[in-house]
Nucleic acid binder design. Structure first.
Lengths: 198, 198
DNA sequence: AGTGTTACCTTGACATCGTCAAGTTAAATT
DNA sequence: AATTTAACTTGACGATGTCAAGGTAACACT
């Protein structure tokens, strides 16, 4: 008996992973309304009821997809951070760049991760991956937390800022560019903050 | 023939309004997944296909609900602003308070308004109401736009901040209080900005 | 090697959903 | 009063999530 993850047994090679991948594909192609248990099953080449043996219904699949989303999300932030120098301000800007890049390239997945009502809060993998993503942003904020101010407040402020900007940018792209947020780039906003390290 | 709004004719008094109200009720009670054309029709006391004569399918109803949402949203910000003094900083804080109060009391409706893919972008009422809501926030930001900095950037920054904070607060309430954003209040974040009028 | 067990998947059914076509009833118009 | 039109109903269709029951291939064990 296996530990429940990574089933590589018979009929299908790794159905669980194939279903998650198919779900992300559908999300990118047609948004949340295009993501369907039956269509995921179809793309994976199995019958419509097969997913039930790997996930607790649709919400279970959504939870697994969100968990995978947070993994990709973290990678996007880390990749950008690696490309920046070691200067605190540049690093934070790079992390935010990775944040916004992911949100832009995976809009439907991002919304699923952050605004879905039906995710399993208690899922271990989802909790771990989302906390890990937050850690990256928090590390980027750490140099700017002076001893008088609570570092947590800085984190929440930056997180709110980038999260909010991502959401508004989505709407800016949906509307036909009439949206106020479309003309402004995030770096300008960060510079207004006049953050100072230490 | 009427102008399409405010049908007070026969069988039902004002079905259009009743359907929107029922939709908001369902949204508050069970989230987006509980919002159904057929259930709205049922609550309004009409048959399942009646809504089709007032809205362009489900997306049309969602659009009307979102438009009504922006109206309530604007009222919430205006109400709080009235309760504050005339000092610029207090006014902006009050507007944000009304913003966050609405987002908290109507979480599902708020998410529908800001993250739904299926709203009619081109709907006249929705566009008008959402622009009106943005105006309120923009007016609150105006005193802080120095001539050297583009006022629009300040608006986007504040909007991103409060929008992002609202979204994170939703997740903080969904998770069981373990979320970082739950311990911090928005006023603390606003004070970090050290905004100065003029 | 043969047998039983179990994990993996299929088939079929059901209720619910959005949508469409056609019909019905009541109001408005002429 | 007759006709037109607006408001709603009825019935049907395909798609969806979920459940129950069955089948099949891999594995375990004697």
């Amino acid at each position: 008996m296996e530990v429940s993850h990574k089933k590589k047994s018979h009929h299908h090679g790794d159905l669980r992973e194939a279903l998650v991948a198919a779900g992300i594909e559908l999300l990118n192609e047609g948004g949340l309304s295009a993501l369907t248990l039956r269509k995921c099953a179809g793309r994976a080449g199995v019958s419509h009821a097969a997913p039930a043996h790997h996930f607790d219904g649709l919400n279970g699949l959504l939870t697994a997809i969100a968990a995978r989303g947070f993994h990709i999300f973290s990678r996007s932030m880390i990749d950008e951070r690696k490309k920046s120098g070691s200067e605190p301000k540049a690093m934070l800007a790079a992390i935010c760049q990775g944040y916004l890049q992911f949100a832009q390239d995976n809009a439907a997945l991002y919304n699923l991760m952050f605004t879905s009502e039906n995710l399993g809060f208690d899922d271990e993998e989802l909790a771990r991956r989302s906390v890990a993503a937050y850690q990256i942003l928090a590390e980027g904020c750490a140099p700017f937390a002076s001893r008088t101010e609570d570092g947590e407040k800085i984190e929440i402020m930056i997180w709110s800022l980038v999260h909010g900007f991502a959401g508004l940018s989505h709407k800016a792209r949906a509307s036909n560019g009439e949206h106020p947020a479309s003309k402004v780039v995030f770096d300008d906003i960060l510079s207004i903050l006049e953050l100072k390290a230490e």
